[in-house]
């Protein structure tokens, strides 16, 4: 019963802060609200026994990606006249919600009809198990991700450098 209470609190936090994130005008408020979503999702990972994913989510998402976004937003020195004028924002959001809601309802009813057993929350998925899995079965994807990160690094450097040549 305690786990259900924790789940409801974290789920409400995630849903409310995600809704705030797509509604607010200033990107910095959206980023700060998105941090709350990411931290509650990290809490849900911990609830599901993914201790390593909890750490990775906090360190990489909340610690690196969102900090990078906040840094770029401050670095660009965004004024109000740089923001897009969105006079029909509320109308767009309501229309898209009405459009997406039937698909979500279909998905939710499909999941509901599958009759899953209740979860018994135990501690599985320690860091050692994940490491064994990652370095035995997932070695090739792991190395390919490292190459992908290297390519992203080179791409970012080239993008930044080309901008300097123009100026």
């Amino acid at each position: 019963m305690l786990s259900l209470t924790i789940f409801i609190i974290l789920a409400l936090l995630a849903l409310v802060s995600a809704s705030v994130m797509i509604y607010v005008k200033q990107p910095i408020n959206a980023a700060l609200s998105f941090i709350v979503t990411l931290l509650s999702i990290a809490g849900l990972f911990a609830l599901l026994g993914g201790g390593f994913l909890f750490l990775v989510q906090i360190i990489i998402y909340a610690g690196a990606v969102i900090t990078l976004i906040l840094f770029i937003i401050m670095f660009l020195n965004i004024k109000d006249e740089n923001l897009p004028v969105e006079p029909f924002k509320v109308r767009w959001i309501i229309a898209m919600t009405l459009l997406v809601a039937p698909f979500s309802a279909i998905l939710i009813s499909t999941v509901h009809s599958m009759n899953f057993k209740p979860l018994y929350l135990e501690n599985f998925g320690s860091i050692k198990d994940i490491g064994m899995e990652l370095f035995t079965e997932w070695v090739l994807p792991f190395e390919m991700v490292s190459i992908l990160l290297l390519i992203a690094l080179i791409g970012v450097v080239i993008l930044a450098k080309r901008e300097e040549e123009h100026a």
């Binding site: 995600a18 809704s19 797509i22 959206a30 976004i69 229309a95 898209m96 939710i108």
Partner: peptide, 19 residues
């Protein structure tokens, strides 16, 4: 599912590239 739907709604209906 709900978070994914919120993501789709935000992706389509906003014009601010950060959001």
């Amino acid at each position: 599912i709900l978070l994914f739907s919120i993501g789709i709604v935000g992706m389509v209906s906003r014009r601010n590239i950060f959001i």
